[in-house]
């Protein structure tokens, strides 16, 4: 469906824009009717749940490159230069190399994907991403037969990412997926949300989104993608293997050693809204449970 509608056209604007932004937004709309990510296709994978507001999605972020407080990324991420941007694609691929982001996006089938997002800290949101399936890029690069895993890395640029001047994590931030997880149609590289380019604090210009896994698996501001035959090291697993497994699938039955994962608080639901039950695979079990058939998920957490 390509009516040229932006999310900003169907969502009551005051919910996510203040009046000044509204004026600027209206001006921009008149001046440039087609911004980069408008008119993307809708997806059958999208949830019907109402998305969180842009303000909630952009002011409550775990992005330690910009500080430990959830408000820090919104305060500090404007420093980040996202153009030019390149991604090094390497390892077991037919066409390795350093690709410009524009080349990667050339012909990428952008879709709107409204996904549930569940943080390992037991809060959740619903986020209208714009992105394309990671499989599209991996097929373009040509995955070689022996490859079993995909390893990702975030940019390291301490002069623009003040959190990297501290040893809060072992930089660069690293994540990884098994190849079948990476090729799954739910797994996307997102380049925008609410029909606009990705805000810096949400992982601009391009980030991973794996909706059935805890949020920290969805690595932000990606500069490196490597295909490997061994399981790659992942940042939170390196930090504390007992608490954060390689898979980190959303699972209400496997507690974090320090807190329960049985339920979650929906950000934006209101002070007295209480909790919702957490769903197995964050509600995406129908699509992804078969990937883990025969595995003991209390061991491979």
């Amino acid at each position: 469906m390509t009516l040229g509608l932006k999310w900003s056209d169907v969502t009551p604007k005051p919910q996510w824009m203040n009046r000044r932004q509204l004026m600027a937004g209206a001006g921009a709309l008149l001046a440039a009717p087609a911004v980069a990510q408008t008119g993307v296709a809708k997806s059958a994978f999208s949830t019907d749940a109402a998305p969180n507001t842009l303000s909630e999605i952009t002011t409550y972020n775990n992005f330690y490159e910009f500080g430990l407080d959830k408000g820090d990324p919104a305060r500090n991420a404007r420093l980040l230069t996202t153009d030019p941007w390149g991604i090094e694609i390497g390892g077991m691929v037919d066409r390795p190399g350093s690709y410009d982001l524009a080349d990667i996006l050339q012909g990428a089938p952008l879709e709107e994907r409204i996904y549930r997002f569940r943080c390992v800290e037991a809060w959740s949101m619903v986020i209208p991403w714009v992105g394309f399936e990671l499989a599209h890029l991996l097929n373009k690069a040509g995955v070689q037969p022996g490859a079993k895993y995909v390893a990702f890395e975030t940019l390291v640029r301490p002069e623009e990412m003040p959190g990297q001047k501290t040893a809060a994590l072992d930089w660069p931030y690293r994540e990884g997926l098994r190849l079948d997880e990476a090729m799954h149609p739910l797994t996307i590289l997102a380049t925008g949300l609410y029909g606009d380019p990705m805000p810096n604090q949400n992982g601009a210009p391009i980030r991973l989104v794996v909706p059935w896994k805890y949020g920290f698996k969805s690595i932000k501001s990606i500069v490196s993608i490597r295909l490997t035959d061994t399981q790659p090291q992942t940042t939170w697993n390196m930090q504390n293997a007992r608490e954060y497994g390689f898979y980190s699938n959303v699972n209400p039955e496997v507690s974090h050693p320090r807190w329960s994962q049985a339920s979650e608080r929906r950000v934006g639901a209101g002070i007295f809204a209480g909790r919702e039950d957490t769903l197995m695979f964050n509600g995406y079990g129908e699509q992804v449970a078969s990937l883990y058939a025969g595995m003991d998920l209390s061991k491979d957490y």
Binding site: W259, S260, A262, S263, R265, I271, F272, A273, G274, R275
Partner: peptide, 20 residues
């Protein structure tokens, strides 16, 4: 009240399982 939403089963489980 606000965080656990009066889910007493989860509250009680936390009270004997979670060190913090």
């Amino acid at each position: 009240v606000l965080d656990m939403g009066l889910r007493w089963d989860e509250i009680l489980r936390d009270l004997y399982k979670r060190p913090y």
